[in-house]
Amino acid sequence: MSPTSLLEDLFAYPFMVNAFQAGTIVAVAAGAIGWFMVQRRQSFAGHTLAVIGFPGAAAATWLGSNPAVGYFVACIGGALIIAALPHAGHIGGETGGVGEESAVIGTVQAFALAAGFLFVSLYQGFLSGLNNLLFGTITGVTTSQVQMLAVAGIASLTLLAVIARPLLFATIDPAVAASRGIPVRAVSGAFLVLLGVAAAGTSQVTGSLLVFALLVAPAATAVRLTARPDLGIALSVAIALMVTWAGEAIAYFSPYPIGFWVTSIAFAAFLAASAVSALRERRGRRRQRRTKEAVA
């Protein structure tokens, strides 16, 4: 099969065009916002927000409205609540963190999933829809959903561009940033809302449980390859696009679902970058030792 006929085949159905448009918008937003999230060590906050999106989408389906609305309302609402809590910046910070705090996050996640399950069982005959909400689908993206994603994507990227510099400053050194007059709390709150938008959008491609594949893995891969912010964000977006496009295309031609392909490709990219950075580190250490020996 020639490449052109392969592409023709791929886009023969409108649902695939929708899926690719949605995937492209989501990948750009998730790649950029995800880069800041990884720098701020808030990846579990992103995961929690995505999980909170699940009952939102399930409730929207049960009430007969667009699940995309449910995702956005629940994720942005969740972000606003987390931002209003004290110590908002630390939620989901370090691994495990303080036992108490991560236990609260775990409780919130379990309750959100249980509530989503409640709405799914209230809306009977929705069993395959449950999998789509949790693990993603390529066939379910509607045109109105793509339009909503486009609006949300452009709005969130514009806001990100506006707060990018103070956000980066506040991320690297909050104390100095605050002393320079940057409203650290407001910037962190605004970022959490952006994260909510990104989590809601990503959930519509990968499902609520697999958002790490687009929101975290591409950014983490980029961070391992370069320390420069501009290059890192560009690389993160590029990897997210590659993961999404490849995942959707392979899912179309294979019998296995998109959730499996997207997570596998993202994980492979992350492993490769980790190997590269480990090699680089070792080479750097060897060079250091050699110069030390030469000096001696």
Binding site: S43, T95, P255, S264
Partner: peptide, 25 residues
Amino acid sequence: GAADDVVIGTTFSWILGLGVFFLSI
């Protein structure tokens, strides 16, 4: 606490993805 959240999160979302794979089989 040695492995960071990004490593754990990415690995386990892949393991879940693998679960979806087994589900379709």
